[in-house]
Amino acid sequence: MQTLAVERKYETFSYLPPLNDQQIARQLQYALSNGYSPAIEFSFSGKAEELVWTLWKLPLFGAQSPEEVLSEIQACKQQFPNAYIRVVAFDSIRQVQTLMFLVYKPL
């Protein structure tokens, strides 16, 4: 039996290779189809105990398509190329966060 190397994991899907835009779009479509409101957050620290997430603009309450959210993810990447970026989705009925996954990790 072999022990895996210690590697920091971030959020859902962190054990997978980075998601491409098509895979991110599918997750966003799932969130939008369920009536969840997506939001984009970023953080500059890579240490889990120091992670402080900052909201990128306001949550995308009126988003109708994954492309709208992907556009904002790209804008966030351009503004903060050294930041970790994640998408979170909120359910306004249950008033809880229902989905959260990392979409960009700096090299």
Results as ranks from 00 to 15, higher is better:
Met100Lys: 03
Ala48Thr: 12
Phe42Glu: 05
Leu19Phe: 04
Arg86Thr: 05
Tyr15Val: 11
Glu41His: 08
Trp56Leu: 03
Ile85Phe: 02
Lys105Met: 14
Leu60Tyr: 13
Pro59Gly: 08
Tyr84Thr: 00
Val87Asn: 00
Leu58Gly: 04
Gln97Cys: 06
Tyr104Asn: 11
Pro81Trp: 01
Ile73Thr: 03
Gln27Ile: 04
Ile93Leu: 11
Leu19Gly: 06
Ser65Pro: 04
Pro81Gln: 04
Gln64Ala: 12
Ile85Tyr: 01
Ala89Lys: 00
Pro59Met: 07
Glu72Trp: 02
Gln22Val: 07
Tyr104Thr: 02
Glu7Pro: 00
Phe80Ile: 00
Ile40Arg: 09
Glu68Asp: 09
Thr3Asn: 11
Ile40Thr: 06
Pro18Thr: 08
Leu55Arg: 15
Gly46Asn: 12
Val6Asp: 14
Arg86Lys: 15
Glu11Tyr: 10
Thr54Lys: 12
Leu60Ala: 14
Tyr30Lys: 10
Gly35Leu: 05
Asp91Gln: 04
Phe101His: 00
Glu50Ser: 11
Pro106Lys: 01
Arg26Ile: 06
Arg86His: 06
Leu28Phe: 01
Gly35Thr: 01
Ile93Lys: 08
Gln22Cys: 03
Val52Glu: 15
Tyr104Ala: 10
Pro59Asp: 06
Ser71Ala: 10
Glu50Phe: 14
Met1Leu: 07
Val103Phe: 14
Gln79Ala: 14
Ser45Thr: 13
Arg94His: 05
Tyr104Leu: 04
Ala48Leu: 14
Ala83Cys: 04
Glu41Leu: 09
Trp56Ser: 11
Lys105Trp: 03
Gln27Arg: 15
Gln64Tyr: 01
Gln78Arg: 11
Tyr10Asn: 07
Val6Lys: 12
Ala39Lys: 08
Gln29Thr: 11
Glu41Cys: 02
Glu67Asn: 11
Leu4Ala: 10
Ser45Asp: 15
Gln2Phe: 08
Leu58Thr: 09
Val52Tyr: 12
Ala75Val: 06
Tyr10Arg: 07
Ala39Met: 10
